[in-house]
Computed example of a mutant assay.
Amino acid sequence: MDALDMLLNRRSMAKLTEPAPQGQVLENIIQAGLRAPDHGSLTPWRFVIAEGDGLDKLSAIFAEAEVKLGSDDVVINKAKNAPKRAPMIITVVATVKPHEKVPALEQHLSAGCAVQAMQMAAMVQGFQGIWRSGSWIFNDNVKNAFHLAPDDQIVGFLYLGSPGMKPMDVPKRNSQDFVSYL
């Protein structure tokens, strides 16, 4: 798959199975994330990989967050099972560094670019993924579990694994609906 074909046909895949990326393939994924646009060379990211027992820890973090919110048992059980949808999850954190020319928002966006680059690197190497966010990225209990500083922000959970289904067709969009010129 060439790069343009991959970008034009990218689809997230919610059903992922073993194996997860390992070794040099995983290192390539991480290195792709480290090449995200980075104004000021601040490297405003941190990647936390969960697999095996780490997925159980992430499950406990999500479930505890829902318990503290007063969620019902259905929501708590859904939270417990969320990390079991893939053999690996990389939590991407924007680690904001004070800088007079690079505001926190720009550093958050840079970390978001890292997630996208990592997902694309997984795809080009034969793996699949889905970038999930939701309320947990803003949840104080989840943030505390990842030891975030006040300006830091989880930008997403990148679920990775082998394709567990055939990807859905890519919807065709008319670029004219989204583009204007000055």
Rank of each mutant, 00 (worst) to 15 (best):
S110T: 05
S133I: 12
I130V: 15
D151E: 09
A145W: 00
K172P: 00
G126C: 14
Q22L: 11
D53A: 15
E64M: 08
L148N: 03
P163I: 07
Q22A: 15
Q176V: 13
K78Q: 14
D5V: 01
D2H: 00
I130F: 08
S162E: 06
G52T: 09
E18N: 13
I61N: 01
D2M: 07
D72N: 13
G23P: 01
N28S: 04
P150W: 02
A104W: 05
M168A: 15
A122K: 03
L160G: 04
G33F: 00
L105P: 00
A114W: 07
N141V: 13
G161I: 04
E100P: 12
P171L: 11
Q176K: 14
Q107N: 07
I130D: 03
P37T: 10
P44L: 14
A122P: 02
A82H: 06
G52E: 08
S71K: 07
Q31A: 14
D73I: 13
P44F: 05
K68A: 15
H99V: 10
T91H: 04
L69D: 14
F47G: 06
A14N: 08
L8F: 13
D140Y: 05
D53S: 12
R85I: 02
V155I: 11
M1V: 12
L160M: 08
A117H: 10
S41K: 10
I61G: 03
R35E: 10
H99A: 11
N9D: 05
A36Y: 06
L55P: 01
P167K: 04
E51L: 06
V179P: 07
K172D: 11
L26E: 06
R11A: 06
I30C: 03
M118N: 03
Q153W: 01
S175G: 12
H147F: 03
K57M: 09
R46F: 02
N77G: 15
N9G: 09
A63R: 12
L55M: 01
L160Q: 02
H147C: 03
M168L: 14
Y181P: 02
S162F: 01
F138I: 07
L148W: 00
W45L: 09
K68P: 03
A104P: 03
Y181W: 14
Y181F: 15
H147A: 15
M168Y: 03
E51A: 12
A114I: 05
L4V: 05
K166E: 15
R10A: 11
A50I: 05
A36M: 04
V155L: 09
